[in-house]
């Protein structure tokens, strides 16, 4: 094991963790506010990637692809919440089944529209290339992902912690009934959070399409990672999603590099251990 190996794998793990944060922060928020276990969240990631792909094909603009992917899935999220999930408020099992149903529908739709071939979004030339520093070689695109995730994390933290709307969201997490009892329009808060979560996942999907690609099955491949992040970090906790993402990114990378045949074990065994020691996850509250 050379120094180069450790540096490269650590960097790869961090950048993968950064991507996972874009996906998992929304999932965690949605669970925190609405107690909805959204199994279609991986589909938002995949569909975001596909929408971004189509926009790139049409316009050639990477920035437009990011914006369009996020907006398109925000609309999908709003429709799902308003027209379907809200009708099943409080019925956990019904909601879970409904989100699985949506995930399967999205899978078929994506196959119908974009076909079965794998695609990848080529990053703009500004983000292509590699930086060499000491023993490590760092692709600029992966550095970009880390920067984006840090920026998104900071923005989310400011929103949740420093604004009145953020305090309203946290009030709705603490006690949704009482939040309505002080005049907070909780249904609207839920809708906003759902749209934001879907948009973040789709944004992550466009970003991720630059190095994971987009292909049929990506949705269900990425979903367990998002859940591990959220469960390890603690449901509904933003710092939890940050730490969980980095942990899972690093574990996954080192697991695959060091023990390729055991890579699921190296990912899930630490999760089981953390849950055994702290059932609410690292930052979760009972």
């Amino acid at each position: 094991m050379t120094l180069e190996f450790w540096v490269t794998q650590t960097f790869n793990g961090l950048s993968y963790g950064a991507l996972l944060f874009l996906l998992a922060s929304g999932l965690s928020l949605i669970f925190g506010v609405m107690r909805v276990v959204n199994l279609a969240h991986g589909s938002y990631f995949m569909l975001g990637g596909y929408v971004g792909l189509s926009v790139i094909w049409r316009t050639g603009s990477y920035v437009l692809a990011l914006v369009a992917g996020a907006l398109a899935l925000a609309v999908v999220g709003i429709a799902m919440e308003r027209m379907f999930l809200r009708r099943l408020a409080g019925q956990t099992l019904g909601q879970v089944l409904m989100t699985i149903g949506f995930a399967l529908i999205f899978q078929d739709l994506a196959l119908l529209i974009w076909g079965g071939d794998p695609y990848s979004i080529r990053p703009p030339s500004l983000l292509a290339g590699v930086v060499t520093a000491g023993p490590g070689r760092f692709p600029i695109y992966r550095i970009f992902i880390i920067v984006i995730a840090v920026a998104v994390g900071a923005a989310l933290w400011l929103l949740l912690d420093r604004t009145r709307i953020g305090a309203m969201i946290r009030a709705a997490v603490d006690d949704p009934e009482m939040a309505q009892g002080v005049g907070i329009r909780v249904p609207r808060v839920s809708l906003g959070v759902f749209a934001l979560g879907a948009a973040l996942a789709a944004f992550g999907g466009v970003v991720g399409a630059g190095f994971l690609g987009v292909y049929p099955g990506l949705d269900f491949e990425i979903l367990p990672y998002a859940f591990v992040v959220v469960i390890v970090g603690g449901l509904g906790s933003l710092p939890g999603a940050m730490v969980g993402s980095l942990l899972v990114g690093l574990l996954d990378n080192f697991g695959k590099a060091l023990f390729p045949e055991l890579s699921y074990f190296t990912l899930f065994a630490p999760m089981a251990l953390i849950l055994a020691l702290k059932p609410t996850g690292l930052f979760g509250r009972a």
Binding site: R164, A167, R170, A171, D174, D175, M178, G181, I184
Partner: peptide, 21 residues
């Protein structure tokens, strides 16, 4: 509403509890 059991929002600060309302 001042509910039975008080039901303040425990994770919010005192000022945040007031401001959200």
């Amino acid at each position: 509403l001042v509910p039975q059991g008080r039901r303040v929002f425990p994770s919010l600060s005192v000022v945040e509890n007031l401001v959200v309302a």
